[in-house]
Design a protein around this nucleic acid. Sequence first.
DNA 1: GAACTAGGCTTTTTT
DNA 2: AGCCTAGTTC
Length: 845
Amino acid sequence: MTGFPAARTNADSPLLQGLNPEQRAAVTFTGGNVLVLAGAGSGKTRVLTTRIAWLLQTGQVSSGGILAVTFTNKAAREMVTRLAAMVPVSVRGMWIGTFHGLCNRMLRAHAASVGLPRQFQILDMQDQLSALKRLLKAHNVDTELVPPKKLQSFINSCKEEGLRAGDVPVRDAESRQRVELYQLYEQQCMREGVVDFGELMLRSYELLRDNAAVRQHYQQRFRHVLVDEFQDTNRLQYLWLRLIAGEAGNGRLQGTSSVMAVGDDDQSIYAFRGARVGNMADFVREFGVAQPIKLEQNYRSYSHILDAANALIAHNSQRLGKTLRTEQGAGEPLRIYEAPSDFAEAGWIVDEVRQLMQVDGFARQEIAILYRSNAQSRVLESALISAKVPYRIYGGLRFFERAEIKHALAYLRLLENPQDDTSFLRVVNFPARGIGQRSIETLQDEAGRGGQSLHAASASLAGRAGDKLRGFVDLLDAMRREAQGKPLREIVSLVLEESGLLDHYRGEKDGVDRVENLEELVNAAEAFIAQEGYGADATALPLDEHGVPLVQSPASQGVDLDAPFIEESAGDAAALGAVLGERPGEPAFLVDAETGETLSPLGAFLTHASLEAGDNQAQAGQEAIQLMTVHASKGLEFDAVFIAGLEEGLFPHYNSMSDRDGLEEERRLMYVAITRARKRLYLSHAQERMLNGQSQYNPPSRFLEELPEESVRWLTPRRGAKGADGDAGLGAGPSSFWSSADGSSSPGRRSGAGGSSSWQGHQPRQSADERAWREAASAPVPARRQGAGDAHGIRAGQKVFHPKFGEGQVLALEGAGDDAKAKVNFGRHGTKLLLLTVAKLTVVD
DNA sequence: GAACTAGGCTTTTTT
DNA sequence: AGCCTAGTTC
């Protein structure tokens, strides 16, 4: 590969300006494969993107020879953006994406060779679970004995290890059954033309392993492979990389390409989903890494924060070894606060947040509150709401995972692939069209007999059920016909209307948000088209979710492949079967030369929806405090960070405390949390916490003990020391608990530094809230009256409490004995007629 | 088929 | 406590 403007050698390239010696060594490494141990905040992404830019600029590789793999779409996007800003080369032609995104791309290009229909759909976890439930039902397997979720994680972990059902050893009847179900599930997926996430990876691996031509093609194409977050790779991903990097079949590595694996063993926090830190050591051995490069210079945090992180992680026994250092000053020590309750903890955090903003001038979006589990966000949220501090919460349902969106996507998938039974079942009776369980079971039996899809079987069903089912199928077929040739936006629109989804939600009293989301889906479709270049310009290349063309344009194949700054076109497509088809007046399609099948804009959009579930919060970009789990915070950084709920059992979590590996992963999680902070770090724990509906009294996290004395400051007397907190300990009953919680919110309690302004106005607010809280928490005492016996301590006009609907007023009573009912107005929840023998009603005095 | 209730479950999460 | 599923009743 020649032709780049004279390969400038190292030192004078502007790209290398400002890099420290280790970073520079990594960027310019030329000795084959290398492992980069990149500590938190050590400029890892910069090194990765600069290396790609440097490789291109020095003419060592053309853009088509680059393969860069990340774990999240966000990371891939970031890499593309930064790279585009760095070098004037088109990022098209480079393979930059997530493992799954790239595997998807590979499978689409070779669909016929891997035995998949070109328009195969991708199952997300939800879809997979419902497919499994259906399978279990069809085979009369007791879900008590084989919980669907267990089966799901079994299958997924098999795939993560690279194991097909036939490869899994069988020991006893139970494991035999699981393996059989794995096999049956696979058959079901193939029949329906769907693949799960693990399958994308596994099938792509098998393609490379079993098809020498394909393997050699990609091996020769990718001269440089870069892997981000290498500590999070699972076994299969490792094997996949080995093949890509030049392993010949089962033989040894031949080293056709150079691999740079970048990772940090101390930040490995995904073992629970198959990540294998051991891949780092294996990589060093099998890929012949002479000397790992360590990036230990931290550009993010003050030294108190780093000292704390280093001291904490030193408690782990299994490490490759690495110590972060910084040239920034000491900064302030970490502040540790003990609150009497989770409620008080939230109150304290909000006060500190306000002080950070008002007194210290921190920007809102530069403050993050981190916690171990999502359940903890509630208290924090309510404290922020009452203090009127805008916040943004990560996690939870994402756009494409919302029920109404999944429904709409199911209709769209059925247009694309009528065999998709999971989607069929999802919407066959939604909105309700009189097709009940019985009809569906009959249909499933019929389909099972003929080995047909539900769609196909509908034609041969007799009776009223058959008519109704045919009505549904006709509707789908009509929509499909109508969608023919229309732009994606209109297809989505017409499906929303004609499926009856919009009408359904418009008629629902809480349907406003859902209607809005559905309308948003139309916009998302349009944005997808605009961004990906479909349709609008028939000569544009179809792009995948990272703005990379799915295949090369035939027109570009005549271009000098080595010309500088020209879109690379290595021609996998031409070489291996896929060509870009363009028809006058129609959007570009991806065409499989072997089968002639096409991937339409709709197909591409559906793939996009599966692979990238979208943001979870609508109000992105707004200036707000950031709330998220520690897991979600990985890769981010903030000026000020709060880590809440540092209690034994919560962080470290119970389920991880029993073995050393689990505990060490928790400690790495804590390490990740600490290293998110640039300037300030606040740690807190509560003596009492409501968890799963009951109070828990947990001692402070052991991780607090593992921090160096010099770098922390306790704002409250350290546990064990005598102090004002003594009264709220373990033995405290409900009443003393609440009084102690109240006590904590009095300004006088605070031993930390000033900032009194943020304290004003806090006290009354919290007391009011706490009163409401207390009422809600103490009101229901279901044991007090249940059953018919004294059913009628209840009279009209009384105030009652219902565990679900809250407080309400009894409007009327009717019936008697076991049939006695009360009509109760629950305000916000409306008026309900409740059977007194059943409903858990309590009289409120 | 729809509405409602009872009962079980509950770490983290991306693709 | 809150969410989801299964079961019951109208």
